[in-house]
Amino acid sequence: MANVSVQGVWKTYAGQPVLERLNLEVPSGQFCAILGASGCGKSTFLRLLMSQERPSRGRITLDGAPLPEDPGPDRGIVFQKYSVFPHLTALANVVVGLEFAAAPLTGRLFGRARRRAEMEAAQVLAAVGLDGAHGKYPAELSGGMQQRLAIAQALVRKPRVLLLDEPFGALDPGTRAQMHALITRLWQETGMTVFMVTHDLREGFALSTRVLVFDKVRHDPQAPEAYGATITYDLPLLRKAPPPALAGAVGAQEEQRS
């Protein structure tokens, strides 16, 4: 459904490489965790996948075609913060994605078309466990609920690739575990290819089917900025299902919900 291929990609800022010699083949449906120290280009790599920035050298393809030049609905994203629109209610935050698709001129739907979009959005909100929060503004939601909303919003256009930029970094451990179960379930249901940048080793290993570690392999003590980071470890975790502990958590949550 969405193979991502990264071929000989470099990214330099003002002549200084941040990422170098990136080569990566990600088959459809993989869940890649991207780990590495701060400043090792993890988020830069995500921005390249997002088309927010373009590689200085090399190319990235999505299902064999070059990546579009702009961010688009084929690749959804969840940021750590500022991921949802503060001026829209939870329901409107999800409906707006459908409105962008259906109403190029006004960006708004009315009447029956709007009710249909609201029903579709309500299903997505239900899938992330936000049934009771339709009318609430993001500022009225807890951090975990805001990230649930951000995920619902990212899913409503059914992206082929989901990019997660430290999505759970600001959440407390209990909420984080719930979010892990949620994202695992959604990933399995949709078959999306997922890239998740995280600082948390355990989170990376627990959720993903493949761990990518970014680090600098070449060092010049006189010029610490001379070389960029690349993928130093590429660990397939040889599993298609979530680990048993998480599977249990998913089951428990499903029971609670039903």
Binding site: G72, P73, G97, L105, G107, A154
Partner: peptide
Amino acid sequence: ELLIKAQTLGASTWQ
């Protein structure tokens, strides 16, 4: 992030 997010939802500049 908000502008990027809107683009990933398919919004044009006008939208």
